[in-house]
Nucleic acid binder design. Structure first.
Length: 414
RNA sequence: GUGGCUAUGGUGUAAUGGCAGCACGAGAGACUGUGGCUCUCUUAGAGCGGGUUCAAAUCCCGUUAGCCACCCCA
């Protein structure tokens, strides 16, 4: 035998049993998104690498360390998408959608790629579902995407979770605050942990959510983002919170919440399931990104859900599909039974035929093992009466059903 | 990217350098038109590569993968 080939590091197969909850969650999300007027958009998995450098940020970890990047045969520098927002914005601009109407609402779903060190809930190919709203400046839109996220999380059965929210300012006030914080850091640099010393140079804001107790203590006396928000940002923040109250969404303001992508402005938020280490969803507003990627100045807000993390916590839903196992005992029964059985498929009943010429006993054994509850048996005896023998494996009862009555039988029993 | 832990049939596990065993699962069968219980048989295993040794699942080195903490993020 030749050497077996296995999945490469950090990626995995999702097998049928596991996928039941994935499908459950995905269906919930899609119907919810649609009910709010969001439309699906599908964007490529590969893009010009520059797209992510210009949006996510050249100095973020995602772009610097975690991006799958390669040259194609013509020497173009291509990246596997590490997230979807950049691509959606690119598409939005490329198709001049802003010329069609003011507000656009999109949802997407698919795999993303980051060259991270794998761990539970952290994969190199992972799946995100998310939404983006373009053209809405008002805090209402921030509120609406958070409402949507909240509805999704609760609709799949989670009760114990927190939505954390913060404002990190805009073009005008974010740099002022960043500089203040930077100064404060250099004054006290020796007291901070080694990681923070590095952050102070590359990504100052990230110091804020350091887990080190000492760092947090020092930060308490440092500049607070809330004191530096400009008038516009303050107002937007109040507006957003107002809508959250109207939608009655419980949230927790966390002044230390910052996010690792450069494009965020004003509102940022995350969802944490209690007892879980990783956050399962995150998002925020990005009012400058469309402009930055070559489009007009159009504000936007959105979020992404980490489906792998959601499904890791989720239990498989109860199976409720009706499955009928059909047993044919001879050739003649098979020939006559197949067209009738096919009528049932048209009625959305799942039909499994295993025509392996076994004994009835063995058929039933198989059916029992697979925990299938209903069986049709067709052999000489039944055929002479133009009927199927219907057997319920759960209570052992059985009855003859005439060929002509078969669809009505299921009409009554559905 | 840094540090640590782990690795035996499909799954869960046992064997303290000396014959790789058990349970579950899976397949076939024990009245060829009636399953679940029981019984019989079958199936299949040391991640990979080196080293030490008469002898390695066991000790050593490397590697790969998973997990944990960090980092980062979904």
């Amino acid at each position: 035998m030749d050497k077996e080939i296995k999945t490469i590091r950090g990626v995995r197969d999702l097998l049928p049993e596991e996928l039941e909850k994935w499908q459950f969650a995905e269906e919930k999300a899609v119907s919810l998104f649609k009910s709010f007027g969001f439309e699906e958009i599908r964007i490529p998995i590969i893009e010009e690498a520059a797209l992510f450098q210009r949006s996510v940020g050249t100095y973020t970890d995602i772009v610097q360390k975690e991006m799958y990047i390669f040259s194609d045969k013509k020497g173009r520098v291509i990246a596997l998408r590490p997230e979807a927002t950049a691509g959606v914005v690119r598409a939005y601009i490329e198709h001049r959608m802003f010329d069609v109407k003011k507000i656009h609402k999109f949802y997407y779903s698919g795999p993303m790629f980051r060259y991270d060190r794998p761990q539970k809930g952290r994969y190199r190919q992972f799946y995100q579902m998310g939404v983006e709203i373009f053209g809405g400046e008002n805090g209402f839109y921030d509120g609406e995407v958070i409402l949507l996220l909240d509805k999704f999380i609760s609709s799949i059965g989670f009760k114990d979770y927190i939505i954390e929210i913060n404002s990190i300012g805009c073009n005008k006030c974010k740099p002022i605050y960043t500089e203040k914080l930077s100064n404060y850091l250099s004054e006290n640099l020796s007291s901070f942990c080694n990681d923070c010393k590095i952050r102070a140079q590359n990504n100052v804001l990230r110091v804020m959510d350091c887990k080190n107790q000492t760092c947090q203590q020092i930060l308490k006396d440092g500049p607070n983002i809330n004191d530096f928000l400009c008038q516009d940002c303050k107002q937007h923040k109040e507006q957003t919170y107002q809508y959250l109250k109207i939608f009655s969404i419980p949230y927790k303001e966390n002044p230390y919440l910052v996010r690792g992508l450069d494009y965020y402005t004003k509102t940022v938020f995350e969802v944490k399931i209690s007892g879980e280490e990783n956050s399962v969803a995150g998002g925020g507003r990005y009012d400058n990104l469309v402009d930055q990627l070559g489009g007009p100045c159009i504000p936007a807000v959105g979020f992404a859900i980490g489906m792998d993390r959601i499904c890791e916590i989720l239990k498989n839903p109860e199976k409720k599909d009706r499955i009928i196992w059909v047993v044919f005992l001879d050739e003649k029964s098979f020939a006559e039974g197949i067209p009738i059985i096919d009528k049932l498929r048209k009625k959305n009943i799942k039909i499994i035929i295993d025509y392996d010429k076994r004994s009835l006993k063995n058929y039933l054994k198989i059916v029992n093992k697979q925990k299938i509850e209903e069986v049709f048996i067709l052999g000489e005896n039944e055929l002479s009466q133009k009927s199927f023998l219907y057997k319920n494996m759960k209570n052992g009862t059985q009855q003859l059903i005439h060929f002509n009555d078969i669809t009505t039988f299921f009409g009554e029993n559905l």
